[in-house]
Structures are given as structure tokens and as C-alpha cells.
Amino acid sequence: MSSILITILFLSSIGIVAAIILYLFAQKFKVLENPIIYDVEDALPAANCGGCGYPGCRNFAEACVNSDSLDDLYCPVGGQETMDIVANLLGKEAKQTDPRVAVIRCSGSFKNRPRTNHYDGASSCAVASALYVGDTDCPVGCLNMDDCVEVCEFEAIYMNRKTGLPVVIDEKCTACGACVKACPRDIIELRKRNKKDRQIFVSCINKEKGGIATKYCSVACIGCTKCFKVCEFEAIIMGNNLAFIDSDMCALCRRCVPECPTDAILEINFQPVRTKTDKENKTASDKISEKVKADIKE
């Protein structure tokens, strides 16, 4: 029985001594860091994509805790939900932001945009764009070399080899903005996510005059202002021979779409198919999204 007593005496005294020492140390070195940072970090999606403008989720959490308001802080991956949780944790107001989705503002497929020369360098849009104008004469069109595809953390963009244009998979897109940064031509835009991922936008950013632009590309925006005139919601802005549909203003009435003489305005995820280019783009994207869904099911 003595061994039991010795064990008890020994271990218990170790326990007490350790507790005293720990207490003293805890008093001496109080934690300086706000522990709420951990909670905020836990609430974030941990994608570390950098879409928020900070190098990682941890840094974003710190920024959230340290700043006075959450107005300038937004986690594109987690979206409004996450920001609400964070705001709740910190007792601050989260700014109401609509979820967004990336769209490709170029319809210059191989068919629509004749090639005028042949690029044979490193397969990177950034390299090609720095070197020269691209395979076609369009100085702003898609270079179809996968820079946006490679940079996407969520596999939400793939390159359609037949048209030579990237396609965004709406379901997967988190609007982190990585592709927007990666595109040397600034073709990709983050637009407001509408019901059923419907989207109407001008799929061209060419600022040349109409005659020159159509020479490069048959579906270029020629700045004819027809869509501008027909829009009732003041969602269309004209400038530099180019129309732009503001996604926050657009009511998806589709009135502008048939007006466009060059089919430069695209509608995505709407019911019946109307125009030729739309058909091409839509069927391709539909097929893929179905395929992706099938993959997920597997």
C-alpha cells in the first residue's frame, strides 16, 4: 500500500507546484494578441486565395479585427454569409454586398476573329501581350493561352479549345478576382450575380471605331448606341466607341440584345436561344456545366 501513498503524494505535489508556476507565468506573460482573431479566422473559408487583397485568411482576419469598420473588407469566397458571421463576432456592421461572378468580355472565337499571324512563343498571355498585339489584329481581345485558367484556385474556368475562349463555370466561381488580375487584357469582369446566374453583358472591350473594329472581329462592339437608346434602366453607358452594361443597374429585360447589329451583347442562362453567337457560346457552356455536374455526382 505504501507505493500507492508515495505515488499520490508525489504526483499531487507535482500538480500543485506546476499549477503555481503556471499561474505565475500566466500573470507575467499575458497574451497580447486579441484571441478573437482566431475565431474570425475560423469563420473564414481558409482558401488563402488572396481575393480579399490580403496575402492569406489570417491576415484578413487581423485586418477585420483591427479596423474600425468592415466597409472596405470583403471575403469574395465566403461571400455575404461569411462577412455577416465575422461582423457578428466583432459586433460590427458588415457592408451589404451582392455576390458576384466573373464573365469573359470577349467573343472573339476562332470563327469570329480571323488570325493574322501565328504565335510561337511561351504559352502565356502575359508574355504574348507584352511582346505584341496577338494572333489577331484586335489589340484587346482574348489571347487564349490559359493564364486565367491556371490562376483559378477553384477550377472555375476552363478553355474551350474549339472557340479559343475561356468559359466560366458559374457554380464554382467565387469571384475572388484572381483571373481579373491575371488577364493582361482586362477582359474579365466581376459582375453582379443574378437569379439563375443570368447575365447580360457587352462581350467586347474594343475601343476602336466601328469600321476598324469589325475588321478585326465580326462580333465587336461598334459603339452604334442602339442598345443605349433602347435601355429603360440607364444601365448602358457609352464611351470610347464602346457600350458597357452596368450589372447593378441592369434589369435583365433583354431588350438590348436583339438590337445589337454585331451580336456583341451576350445573354447567358436565358431560356430560348436567339442569335448565332449566343448559340455557340451557350451550348458549349451548357455542355460543360452538365459534364461538371456529372463529374460531381460520380
Binding site: 512563343g121 511561351a122 502565356s124 508574355v127 511582346l131
Partner: peptide, 12 residues
């Protein structure tokens, strides 16, 4: 390998 292609980009 397209070494210079990328280095030029890196420089920019």
C-alpha cells in the same frame, strides 16, 4: 525552354 520569354515578363 522559353527562358527569356518569362524573364522578360519578370523584368517588367
Amino acid at each position: 525552354r522559353p527562358l527569356l520569354d518569362y524573364i522578360r515578363l519578370g523584368k517588367t
